[in-house]
């Protein structure tokens, strides 16, 4: 059933958020240290295990697929809720720093990718 997939997904998210906040508290920061990332790792690991023991019924997968197909509309809504006015009001310092970091980041993608291939052992 679709709800099982949704519950599974939210279970992973909740555990991940919990772990992220506990980790943050342990490190003395009042923020979440990658909770969503941890949740995704949980879902990937759990999904992999379920797939191998073939205990994952069709509709549970559909529950999760429903949410990932909602993803784009949610992203558009997120874009429409951004504080763009404040970004524009930040003036040239915000623009220079923001743009500089973005350009630098884009440029580095192929380089770091190559380093990563060497570290992890390329195919």
């Amino acid at each position: 059933m679709v709800i099982y997939g949704t519950a599974l997904l939210c279970g992973c998210l909740f555990l991940g958020l919990l772990a992220g906040r506990l980790l943050g508290a342990a490190l003395g920061i009042h923020a979440d240290v990658g909770g969503v990332g941890l949740a995704m790792l949980l879902l990937v690991a759990g999904n992999d295990r379920l797939r191998r023991t073939s205990k994952l019924p069709q509709l549970t997968g559909e529950g999760v697929r429903f949410w990932s197909s909602i993803y784009l509309p949610v992203t558009v809504a997120m874009a429409a809720s951004q504080n763009v006015r404040a970004a524009v009001m930040g003036g040239w310092i915000a623009l220079a720093a923001g743009a500089g970091v973005v350009v630098g980041g884009f440029a580095l993608v192929p380089w770091i990718r190559r380093i990563g291939d060497q570290e992890g052992g390329a195919k």
Binding site: L9, C12, L13, L17, V36, A39, V44, R65, V74, S81
Partner: peptide
């Protein structure tokens, strides 16, 4: 709809 909660559910779902 674009807030943290629904966004995070949708992001984690893509991990499927």
């Amino acid at each position: 709809l674009g807030g943290a909660m629904i966004r995070d559910i949708a992001i984690v779902a893509t991990a499927m």
